[in-house]
Every structure is written in structure tokens, then in C-alpha cells.
Design a protein around this nucleic acid. Structure first.
Ligand SMILES: [Mn+2]
Ligand SMILES: [Mn+2]
Ligand SMILES: [Mn+2]
Ligand SMILES: [Mn+2]
Lengths: 220, 220
DNA sequence: TTTATTTTTTAGAAACAACTAAAAATAGAT
DNA sequence: ATCTATTTTTAGTTGTTTCTAAAAAATAAA
């Protein structure tokens, strides 16, 4: 129905507008898509032409209802494939994104619902990100950065804000992953770094403020 | 590395040349790819340029070693995905080809080997077609059309020559699928149709010559 | 061996998706 | 309000993949 390139733009526009920056600017999209501003302008005209977005010159772009529908379905496909790759094929959470970027474009009316059932209808992906359901509804979960938790508080890791391989592999080496139980022991006032205890492993370690702000947790 | 279009042409050239028509002609490729002769000529030049095929004007095309390697890997990916779709997601054998056509182009160094292991290293796909191994070797099986089996002979269905939805759904309705045990009861001389018994179901039926020639069996 | 038919290639064009360089519009600062 | 800096759009180009129409080559027929 739509090209992979069009779909990637729709997904990027949805991501940026859900982050709050709406309407989405040409420059923000160029940065997100790692391309140039003229390429973005071209595509925005095509998306508007196809009624997937409303585009006003020098102002920005917003998805139409149909655009949101398609972009949300893409996020659903991307994240379900990520679950498949980790749960069924044994890939690590830092390895699956690039494959999912390709798999999400596979078109078939029934495929993704079968995959969803095969995976047991997961609500969150390997990075803790919500998976929209078949109707486009997003599961909600009250999560916050670990850096917000007060000293003495306890929480469970439920997501990451930074999806880079470097950060994910660093977390692996520390023994931190989704579901890990963390107790905040101390906050260093000098650089806001955090001393925490991994409750299950019974191991203490120090996290930089940058790392603590990139970890999402649910309070206990 | 290569575009989906290039990969599709490589796969088609491999298919036709394995069928015996080598070198492959522009016309045969145009028919196989459902496109026009000029499009084929263009692509053959590009494939030759990239050392994936040797192409001589007005003569035909042959894959290079690298071309064979890539095309064989594609067939492997296509057929492993077809196994996944039937075995794990519960699709029927007439539903999986179009999805596999898309999935086969997903690029990743480890993905297909992980999928192969997850599926238990199958050697044949849902249509009975051989799945090349990671080194590009094709499993062999001495199979023949059901129409060749003499009266009184017994055989097991191991493949189909016609992959059309119409034929596959017709077989479903008859109760014929891979692994079904067939006994040939009688050959009608008039139109070469075949009276057979489905041994497990204990049911007798008549197959046209066209159908019997499209069914591959292994003799018992 | 000409002639006619079929097949294949060339020529030219269109749609898509990307780019660089230059012009235009907007936003920010004096 | 004017000038400056940034952002965005326009213009022009490239590469890919497809097509139709016309020319050229190969094959088949007379
Ligand atoms: Mn991802
Ligand atoms: Mn993810
Ligand atoms: Mn197939
Ligand atoms: Mn098959």
C-alpha cells in the first residue's frame, strides 16, 4: 500500500509528535531520519498529497487520522517482531532493532495478529516500550526515571530511555535488565550519581546521573 | 547489500537455470517475473556490472558463483520463513508464499541461522521443496510424479509441482497433503486419470492426469 | 536465400527517493 | 525596525526501477 520510506516518515512523525513537539518541524524530522531537510520537504509533500498528513509550508506537519493509524500499526509490528526475536530466537535487546526496522514493513492482513497470539499478546517490548493493540490503543504504565526516586525508595526497572547499543550493553554488564529490583541507597550531591542495590543479586553499584535518567522504573 | 529487485531477479534466474533452460533468456525471465522484456534487459546489465551474472546480448544470462550463492541463500530464507509461518503461526500452505516473498529480503548475518535452529533445521518446506543448508547444499530426495506410479504401487506424497492456491486448496479438500499415503488402484486408459486410495483415511478418489502429474511422491 | 515473424535491445519518459547548492522565509538580536 | 543568523524551500542532479514505442537482431518460413 505505502512504501517503506513513506512508512518510516510516518513513524518518525508519530514518535516526535507523541514526544510533545507538535507540529513536527522539517529540521526535527531530518535529524530523526538522519537525512537532509530537502528530502524531508519532498516527502512531506507526498504524504500530504496522499492525505496521510497535513503540511503547511514553513510551519510543520501533523498526521491525519489515517496517518496515525498507519504509524501506530507500524510501531505495533516493530515491537512485536522485537519480542519475537528476543523471546523465540534468543537475540539480546541491543541486537533486535535493525531487524525489526525491516520486519515491520512486511505487509499482510493476518500476519501480525497471528504473531501477536503466538507471542501471548505481550503488552511491552524488550525495551519496556508499550505495544499498541490491534485497535491502536497504547497500554499505559506509570513509569519515571530512576533519577527521580528518593533515597530509601525501591523500584523495578521497566524500560530505557536510551536505546543505544552502548547503553544496553553497559546495563547487561551491570546486571541491569527489565524486571530487576533496585533499592536507592544514596544520592551523591556533587554529580547526582546514585548508589543503588540490585536486590536479587545482592550487589551494590554506582550509576551516573546520565545513566539514572535513562532508566525507567516503576515504584514499589 | 543488494536491492530486493536485484535479489528477485537472481532468484528467478536460479530457478529457471535449475529447471534446465540455461542460459536463461530475456523472454523467460520476463514471464517468470511478470514484467516486460526491456525491464529485464536493464536489470541483466546491472547484474553483469555487479559481477553477479554473465550476460551476452541476444544470447542469455548465467549466474556467477557469487550470483548462485546469493540466490541460493534467498531460496533458503524464503523456505525457512514458509516453515515458520505454517509450523509456528498456523498458516496453510497456500497462504505463505507472498509473506515469504517479503520476509526473504530481511538482511541480517545471524537471523536466518537462529530461525533455522528454532525450527529444528527442517530440510523441506511446506510444499515439499528442498531447503538449501547454510553452505548452499541442496537436500536430495528421489521423487517422481504420482502419474508415473504403476497400478498396485504405493507411495507417499512429498511435494507439489504446481504451487497455485487453486491446486493447493483442491488438495486440501481431497484430504491430500505432505506425508499422505497413497495406493494406486487403477489407471483409466481413456484420459489417464488415476483411481487411488488414501490409505490412512481409507478413502478412494479419482485424480485427473493433470493433478497426478502435479503431485510428487516417494515410492514405498 | 529472401521474406516474414518473433525476440531482444535501444530510446525516451515517469515515479520515487535521495543529494548539493542557492534562494526565500522565518526567527532572533541589535 | 533593521540587520543577521537560522531554517526551510526551491532548483537542479543522480541513481533505481519501471514502462511504451521504435529499432535492431535473430529465428522461422516461404
Ligand atoms: Mn526498536
Ligand atoms: Mn523496542
Ligand atoms: Mn514460496
Ligand atoms: Mn515453498
Amino acid at each position: 500500500m505505502y512504501t517503506s520510506s513513506e512508512e518510516n516518515y510516518l513513524k518518525a512523525i508519530l514518535k516526535l509528535s507523541r514526544k510533545g513537539d507538535s507540529p513536527v518541524t522539517t529540521g526535527a524530522l531530518a535529524a530523526e531520519m538522519q537525512t537532509t531537510a530537502p528530502s524531508v520537504t519532498d516527502m512531506l509533500r507526498r504524504l500530504a498529497e496522499k492525505q496521510l498528513a497535513t503540511y503547511e509550508k514553513y510551519y510543520g506537519v501533523q498526521l491525519t487520522e489515517e496517518g496515525v493509524r498507519i504509524a501506530t500499526a507500524l510501531v505495533r509490528r516493530h515491537r512485536l517482531w522485537e519480542v519475537f526475536l528476543t523471546e523465540k530466537l534468543g537475540f539480546l535487546w541491543d541486537e533486535v532493532h535493525d531487524m525489526a526496522e525491516q520486519l515491520e514493513h512486511v505487509q499482510h492482513p493476518e500476519l501480525i495478529e497471528r504473531l501477536d497470539a503466538f507471542l501471548g499478546h505481550p503488552r511491552f517490548d524488550p525495551h519496556g516500550d508499550p505495544i499498541p493493540d490491534a485497535q491502536g490503543r497504547w497500554p499505559e504504565r506509570q513509569r519515571q526515571p530512576l533519577s527521580n526516586v528518593e533515597v530509601g525508595g525501591q523500584a523495578v526497572v521497566v524500560g530505557v530511555d536510551d536505546h543505544s547499543t552502548a547503553f544496553l550493553q553497559y546495563l547487561d554488564r551491570l546486571g541491569i535488565g527489565l524486571g530487576v529490583h533496585i533499592a536507592v541507597l544514596e544520592r551523591v550531591e556533587y554529580d547526582h550519581s546514585l548508589c543503588v542495590r540490585l536486590v536479587e543479586q545482592g550487589r551494590d553499584l554506582t550509576l551516573s546521573d546520565k545513566a539514572a535518567r535513562s532508566l525507567f522504573v516503576e515504584l514499589l
